[in-house]
Structure formats: C-alpha cells, structure tokens
Write a protein that binds this DNA or RNA. Structure first.
Lengths: 349, 349
DNA sequence: GTTTAGCACTCAAAGAAGTAGAGTGCTAAC
DNA sequence: GTTAGCACTCTACTTCTTTGAGTGCTAAAC
C-alpha cells in the first residue's frame, strides 16, 4: 500500500496531533498547526482518501479523524521520527543503574517503576529465566519437625527455594551429606545439561536417601519448566490512569483484574517475534481481553543471551516514538547493569 | 453517650441499609423494611436526635441520612451482629489451606487474594518478621567475577539473600570456611541474641577475612532493623473498584499511587493496638492521605508469638460484620497453616 | 407525653429543548 | 489540481422544567 508524500505528511500530522490531544483531528487544525502549504479543503480531500484506504476513521460524521490500528502500524513502521530522550530523562535512568543494587528483584522492580513513570503506561518486567543460569550452590537446610528448605543459587544471581517434607529419621548431618554430593555433581551445570546419567550417579552415591533425592529432583525438574518460577513485576498502574482512555471505570476494572494474573502477563511478554523492540498494536496482541491496548516489549540480555523480557502496556493512543525509545534505552541499561552484576565489568553504553 | 433501645434499632437499620445500598436512607424505607412498629414520622424525630448527637448526617436537606464515622464506630462496638460465614465461604478458605504450600510467599499471596475476593476490599498481607526467627543456615556462595551471594535461611522458613562484592583474592574455599564458622557460631541464634561478644569471637577466628565479615555483618545488621526486609503483598485492587465510592477516577488514582508505596502499607499494618481484629474507621487511620477509607487488620501468630499482620482496606461504607469475620477466620487459618509448616502438627481449628 | 397523619417545602437528579461550534462533503470558480 | 463558499450534520453544552424522595413542622389522636 503506497502513500504519496502529501498523504504521508497528513497522516503523520493527524497521528501526532491525536497522540498529543486525544481529540479527533480536523482539517483546519492541521492546516493551522502543520504548515503543509495547502488549504483545509485539500486536506479534507486527502483525508477522505486516507479513510477509504483504512488508515484513519471518523467517530461520527461531524467529528475529525482518528488513526485506525492500521494507521498506527504505518506510522510506527514508516513515519515516526525517533524520539531523543531529554537530558533529564537520561539522567534519571543512568542514576538508577549506577547505584548498586543489593538484590536483582529490587533492580527489576525499580526498572518497572521508571518505565512506567517515563511512559505513563503500566510496566511489566519479567525476572531472569532460571534456565539461562547454571547451578552454583545447592543446599538442604533442616528446619526441624520434618521440614527442610531446599535452596538453589544460580550463577546469574537468582535464587529459588522451596519447603519440603522429610522423614524424621533424616538428620541435619544427612542433609549436609546430600547437599555436598549434589553440589559436587551439579555445580556449574545448566538445567539442560543435567542428564539422566548424572542423576544415576547421584542415586548410586546416595542410595540411602532416595526418598529425599526424589523430592529434590522433583524441585529441580520443576525449576526446569520454562516460566515456572519467573516472577513478574507489574507496576505504575496509576500512571496509566492519567490517560483519558481510562476514565471509564469498567475498563480499568477489567484491565486490573486481568493484570493481576501472572500467567497472562507472562503470555503477553512472550509475544516477542524479533530482536530489539517489538510493538504490538491493539488487535495484534494475541489476547482477546486486552485488544484495546498496545504493547511495547523487548528482551534484555546477559552475555549476548536473552534472559528475560520487559515492556509496557498502555492505550493504543500512546506516544510510540517516546515509548519505543524509553524501552530501548532501559533495556540496554538493564542488560548492562545485570552484565556488571553477573560477570563483573560490562561495557559502557 | 447513651442511646435508648429504639434509637439503637434505628441507627442499626440506617447503617445496615446504607452498607447494603450505598444510598442515603430515608424514614419511609426504614418503616417499610424494618418492622420497628413505628411510623415514618416517629423515625424522623429520632433521626433528628441521632443527627444532633453526631451518629448520622445528611448529605443535603432533601436526602436521607448516612452514618457518620462516629455512627460506624458505635455500630462496630455495640450494634453489629456477628456475621457467620456461609458454608461455601468456609469451604473456600479451608480448601486454600489444606493444599500444601511449596513456598510461604505463595501462601501469603493467595491469602491476600482470598481476603480480597471475600470482602471486596484491597488486601494487604505482610510477610513474617525476620526478627521473629532464628538463623538456621548461613551460606556464602561464590558467583565469580568478584561477586558472592549471601543466603540467610531462618527457622521460620523465610529466606533472605543479597549480592555482595568480594575482593578477587578470596576463593570459593575461603567463602566455604567463612560460611562454616558463621554457621557454627550463629546457627540457632535469634537476631536479638547476636551480641557483641559473639561477633568478637567470629572476628578472632577469621581475622584474615575481616573485609568480608564486615559485609556480612552489615547485611545481618540490616536484617535486624524491623521491617527492613518485610515484603508486603497487596492484592485484589480490582475487587475494590466494584464499590460505588470508587467510581471517581481521581480517587482511584491517588489511592493506587499511595498503595504502590510499600513503606506506607507497612505503616498502615503497624496500626494495631490490641490483640485480635482491629478496626480503624476513616479518620482513625493515622495517615492523612487515606482518611476516606477504613481498615480491618489483625496479626497472625506462630507459637503464640505474633509474627506478621494482614488486613484489608476498603471504603468507610464496608460490611464491617462480614469483613471482621473474614479477617478473623483467615488469620486463624493462616496462623494454623504456618504453625504446621514451621513446627509440624499444629492445632485443628 | 408520645405518636402519627397531613402538608408545605427543599433539593438533587433526570429529562427536554435549544444553542453553539467544530467539522464535513459538495459545488463551482480559479 | 486547488480552494473558497455554503449547506448540512451531529455532539456537547447550557438552560429550563419536571419529578420524586425526603424533610420538618403542626395539630390531632392515642
């Protein structure tokens, strides 16, 4: 679908204006604000064409035009100017990542808050995939009364723990023995490389404690299932409420109830189809329930490997140029911060 | 302030009706629905008295009456009938706590969701205080590149971890040594009982690793500050939006932005002044920002010791009878579940 | 003395009617 | 191909009116 230059200019003007004001845009407004050198009447003619082609629509006869989803898509793909973050905004982000994080969870949570604050959208940040790391330390700690805690420390700084029940015949010493054997065998292995042979070895060495081993292996197996242990940090919902499209409480209610389901958030973040920043507009989101929103998502990486996703969710009428820049910029910074955290060093951006 | 029996009956009727309908209650409605055997005119006279005494108020001259905060307080203290949970509701709760939790965090989160679902209020659940437990296991795990992870496992099943930087001269073996000394010395101690003498002992034994020790002790000291590491689970916000008082977006927005601050939530939960279920109505909440809400909170216990709080936040016009019952019932069940988790056994309720 | 029927009065909320203004499409002239 | 002019459309806003729930007061009934 080709658009001549003037139609492009007009479409760009309509979308820019509508993103800014949230009001349908009329031909006079464009003629006045955007010096295209043509009269409202001409613009009206072009608008009629654009409408016929499906790039814009009219809420009712005597109103201006608003972009259609297709219009936004064309805008994002071809028309949009790159947004340059203001020095203030850059500072805000940089500052966040220079202070040392004592905990990855906190880092991710703060990332979400910042994302939301800068974009006026809700932010969604996924914790690093367990599968991406390798076991660094495994510890069974006896808690008394037939309970023990299994702690898994991964080399990427994430941690997983689970309460398990143990027979009362098992002593703290037994658990220490099991821990050290498991450590010796598994340490440094990624989840994928724990093969059956390895497990067999462990079994042989610890025949007496098969029962516990089964429990431990069950936990390991669970930690293997992708997404099983991922936490998702959702934040800045209130930032989104300033947008006029959420003045309707019913909309807010359904959206909130959806966003409280972690599994849904995970499936949203999984809709990344290409490297870099991904934009999903309205119906492009494969989730019926939130098709009147758009999403801008990306993956962050450590050592060149994508290990998690993050993004924002907001009204279809969002400032794509800015949001895309912010998501891009923050993804890089987060990747870098994690890189430094896990590997030491890390490149400067 | 004494109220004769008839005034009490009328006040009870007004509050019951208003909680149910969220509309100002008129004398005719009371005469019709609540068979008090008196005419609307008489009720009007009594209402005038009740208003003068400050138990009810009138939004405008030609409207019915609504309860004042003082009226709600009187209702909660003297008039309210105990709410008996329906078998369905009881089942729902019981079911939640019979399934085994693999993780305390999840248990608390589900508790919050249930609280919210049953009360149509937002739920706030605090994680067990670290101070209440004693150290069970301390482990320093080397992650490479000058990073290590300090893991603290408490006997109450909570866990704390933190990334720390270590000089590259330190080896994994060193960390293991430090870990085992720390374990030997600290295991079984509560945070309060770690005295200076104990720390001195450790210092003597590990003079070579003073640098790391300082880092570790700093983390321990931090975990000592009450509230420092408490997580707070906030949930069910969307349940609250069904209440008519939150049809105004501005209200929702300010409330949401407040509730995203963990520190504020912590200070809310700290407002418990007596054992059992506490009710704070409107201005009784020591927090200017949310004085048009009420709170029903309680502490849960393990081994007779209160170790955390939970509660709900909702409009002043909430169904106190039901909310109080639900909070009470769930607190007991949560206490019991944690009891079983930490100590094995635990009483049946 | 207490209770109640009756009545005039009040006021918010809902409905009806009218107005203003932004925007369009079409036509005819440039 | 462009644009000025004009009739037409339709929402949003304002104003006016109506409706009805509710009150307080008074005087009669209990």
């Amino acid at each position: 679908m080709e658009l001549n230059s003037r139609k492009q200019q007009i479409l760009l003007a309509i979308i820019t204006e509508y993103i800014d004001t949230a009001e349908p845009v009329g031909s006079r407004t464009i003629a006045r604000k955007y010096k295209l050198g043509i009269s409202p009447a001409t613009i009206r003619n072009e608008m009629a064409d654009l409408e016929e082609m499906g790039f814009i629509e009219q809420p009712h006869t005597s109103a201006g035009r608003i972009p259609s989803e297709r219009g936004y898509r064309y805008y994002v793909d071809y028309l949009m100017h790159k947004y340059q973050l203001s020095p203030d905004e850059e500072d805000l982000i940089r500052q966040e990542y220079t202070s040392k994080a004592r905990d990855i969870g906190l880092l991710l949570q703060r990332t979400g808050q910042l994302l939301s604050q800068l974009t006026h959208c809700a932010s969604v940040v996924q914790s690093p995939k367990m599968e991406a790391g390798s076991y660094k330390h495994i510890q069974l700690v006896e808690l008394g009364m037939g309970r023990a805690m299994l702690v898994l420390v991964m080399d990427n700084g994430t941690i997983q723990h689970r309460l398990i029940e143990i027979p009362s015949s098992i002593t703290g010493g037994d658990l220490a023995t099991i821990s050290s054997v498991l450590n010796a065998k598994l340490s440094g292995h990624t989840i994928e490389t724990i093969k059956f042979t390895l497990i067999k070895e462990i079994y042989l060495e610890l025949t007496r404690h098969r029962h516990i081993l089964d429990l431990v292996l069950e936990v390991l197996r669970y930690s293997l299932t992708p997404g099983a242990e991922d936490k998702i940090y959702l934040g800045g919902l209130f930032n989104m409420l300033s947008q006029p499209e959420f003045h309707n409480i019913e909309k807010v209610k359904t959206l909130l109830s959806l966003l409280e389901q972690e599994s849904l958030l995970a499936s949203l973040l999984a809709q990344i189809s290409k490297p870099g920043v991904n934009v999903r507009i309205g119906g492009e989101i494969s989730c019926r329930a939130i098709q009147d929103c758009s999403m801008v998502i990306a993956t962050y990486e450590v050592g060149g490997q994508p290990i998690g996703s993050l993004g924002v969710l907001g009204p279809i009428r969002m400032d794509y140029a800015k949001v895309i820049s912010v998501v891009d910029y923050m993804t890089r910074h987060l990747s870098n911060a994690l890189e430094r955290l896990f590997r030491g060093g890390g490149n400067q951006i």
